[in-house]
């Protein structure tokens, strides 16, 4: 029920109505709950209403943190891989 989809604003008409693009489909959306929305912004859409504007800077920060995790994991994985091989040899 609280499912919200990230979508890009493609059209804003008068009275806060407009459309977003979600995976190539244009969906009618009401923007009355947000301030200063422009075409090109990313928003979270829920039940036909945009409920939040995506903060791109915060998004970039999270994604780069996650990429760091993946790199760490790769290093750990190498170690683990060696351990497993040793185990197999011993077992």
């Amino acid at each position: 029920m609280c499912l919200g989809i990230p979508a890009r604003v493609v059209q804003i008409d008068e009275s806060d109505l407009g459309k977003v693009d979600y995976l190539g489909t244009r969906v009618k959306t009401n923007f009355a709950l947000l301030e200063n929305i422009k075409v090109g912004d990313w928003v979270i859409v829920h039940a036909g209403f945009a409920i939040s504007k995506l903060n791109e800077e915060e998004a970039r920060e999270t994604f780069s943190l996650l990429r760091e995790m993946a790199e760490k994991e790769a290093a750990v994985d190498d170690n683990k891989g060696n351990k497993k091989q040793n185990k197999r040899k011993n077992g």
Binding site: P6, L66, R67, M69, A70, V76
Partner: peptide, 17 residues
């Protein structure tokens, strides 16, 4: 945004956890 479902990222986070 692919990081959000990336297997390597998920494994890395689970390792931290």
């Amino acid at each position: 945004m692919k990081e959000l479902r990336d297997k390597k990222v998920i494994r890395g986070l689970l390792y931290e956890i």
